[in-house]
C-alpha cells in the first residue's frame, strides 16, 4: 500500500504524456483550490472544470419565463438563492424584484408547501433547477402537493442529467483523457452508470470524495490507469456512493419524470438530458419545455469554452476585468458553484 506522501511524490514527478482530467462537480473544483492540489502534482497533469453547476447551464429563456411569472399579479416565484443573479435576456430574478416582482428564496423546495397553504390567494411556482441530486426532492414536493390537495403550487423545471452531458463531452471534445465523477450526483445515480461510459469512450471514470487526499488518490488512480492503458470505472468514495445509488430516490424520479432533449447554456442541445414531469402530472407543470432554445453568449464571454474544458476561466478576456460575482457577464460567474465563480474566489492562489 502506498502512503499519501508516496502518492504525492509520484504525482509531482510524473513526466509522461500530458493528461487532462475533467471534474464535473463544483465542490470538487472548490476542494482542488482549497487543498492546493495543482501545486502538488506535475504540470503535465492538468485539472479542468466541466459543467458541474446546473444553475450555470440553465437557459436565459427559462429565466425569462420565471421572471415573467414573478411579475404577474398575485404570483410568487420560489427558488434557491443561487438562481437570483442568473440573467435572462431581459432581467435576473434579483432585477425583477427591484421592478416589483414577488420572489422568495427557500432553503428547501418542501418549504413551499407551508407557503402555499398559508397564502391561498397567491399562485406559487417553484423554479425547479438541478441535477439528479435535487430532482428526487421535487418528486417528493409533487407527492406532498397531491397528498395535501394544494391547488396554488406548481413547478417550472430545468432539470438536467449528468450522464448525457458526459457523453456529449466525450463525443465532441477529444482532449479530455479522464473524468473525476461528481460526488453528490453519484450518491443518487450510483457509480455503475459510469462503467458503460468508461468502456465506450476508453477513458477512466473515477468517483472520488471531497477531501484533498481523496482527490489526490483519485488522480493517482486515473494516472495509473492511463499509464497501464486501462479505462475503468473506479469507485473511491464507497463510504457514500454505492453501485446502484439511492434506489428510493431513483424510483421517485421514475415515478414523476421522463427524459427529453434539453438546452444547456454555453453548450447547446443535448439529447435526453432533461427530466420533465410525465404527461399525467401536467397539472403540476407551470410550463417547462425549453428544448428548442438557441442562445448566443454575451459578446466576449467564453463560458462555452470554459464549460467544455477548452480553456481555464483565467484565459477568458472578461474574467475578473469586467466579469466578477457582482457583475457576472457569463453564467459560470453567477453561482458560487460555477467554475468562474470558484476561480474568481481563489484567484490569488
Amino acid at each position: 500500500m502506498r502512503t499519501l506522501q508516496q502518492v504525492v511524490e509520484e504525482l509531482k514527478n510524473y513526466d509522461g504524456e500530458p493528461i487532462k482530467i475533467m471534474e464535473v462537480c463544483g465542490t470538487h473544483t472548490s476542494s482542488i483550490f482549497k487543498n492546493g492540489i495543482r501545486t502538488l502534482i506535475s504540470p503535465k497533469i492538468e485539472l479542468i472544470s466541466g459543467p458541474g453547476c446546473p444553475v450555470c447551464v440553465t437557459s436565459s429563456a427559462y429565466i425569462d419565463h420565471v421572471v415573467e411569472f414573478a411579475m404577474g399579479e398575485n404570483c410568487c416565484v420560489l427558488t434557491f438563492g443561487d438562481m437570483m443573479k442568473v440573467k435572462g435576456s431581459k432581467a435576473s430574478l434579483t432585477e425583477a424584484v427591484a421592478m416589483g416582482a414577488n420572489v422568495k428564496v427557500l432553503y428547501s423546495p418542501l418549504d413551499a408547501i407551508k407557503m402555499a397553504v398559508e397564502n391561498p390567494g397567491i399562485s406559487f411556482v417553484f423554479a425547479a433547477v438541478g441535477f439528479e441530486t435535487t430532482t428526487p426532492i421535487y418528486a417528493i414536493l409533487i407527492d406532498e402537493i397531491t397528498k395535501n390537495n394544494i391547488k396554488n403550487l406548481k413547478i417550472m423545471t430545468s432539470l438536467k442529467t449528468i450522464i448525457p452531458a458526459l457523453s456529449y463531452i466525450c463525443e465532441n471534445e477529444d482532449k479530455i483523457d479522464a473524468f473525476l465523477c461528481p460526488g453528490h450526483v453519484s450518491v443518487i445515480i450510483g457509480c455503475g452508470v459510469y462503467r458503460q461510459l468508461a468502456e465506450k469512450y476508453n477513458k477512466p471514470f473515477v468517483v472520488g470524495g471531497f477531501e484533498g487526499e481523496h482527490i489526490l488518490a483519485a488522480i493517482y488512480e486515473i494516472v495509473h490507469q492511463i499509464q497501464t492503458k486501462q479505462h475503468q470505472m473506479k469507485n473511491m468514495y464507497s463510504n457514500a456512493v454505492t453501485e446502484e445509488g439511492n434506489t428510493k430516490a431513483l424510483a421517485m424520479i421514475d415515478q414523476y419524470f421522463e427524459s427529453g432533449d434539453d438546452y444547456w447554456r454555453g453548450i447547446g442541445i443535448i439529447e435526453d438530458s432533461a427530466l420533465r414531469l410525465k404527461p399525467e402530472y401536467a397539472a403540476f407543470d407551470a410550463g417547462s419545455n425549453f428544448a428548442a432554445t438557441v442562445e448566443t453568449p454575451p459578446p466576449g464571454c467564453r463560458c462555452t469554452d470554459v464549460i467544455l474544458g477548452r480553456i481555464h476561466p483565467i484565459d477568458c478576456p472578461l474574467f475578473s476585468k469586467v466579469c466578477n460575482p457582482l457583475n457576472a457577464i457569463g453564467p459560470c460567474m453567477v453561482s458560487t458553484e460555477g467554475v468562474c465563480g470558484i476561480w474568481y474566489k481563489n484567484r490569488q492562489s
Binding site: 434557491f80 432553503y107 418542501l110 435535487t134 426532492i137 417528493i140 450518491v187 443518487i188 463510504n239
Partner: peptide, 11 residues
C-alpha cells in the same frame, strides 16, 4: 447527508 432539506444518504 442532507441536500435541500432532504436526507439523501446514510454515512
Amino acid at each position: 447527508l442532507i441536500h435541500a432539506g432532504c436526507v439523501i444518504d446514510v454515512l
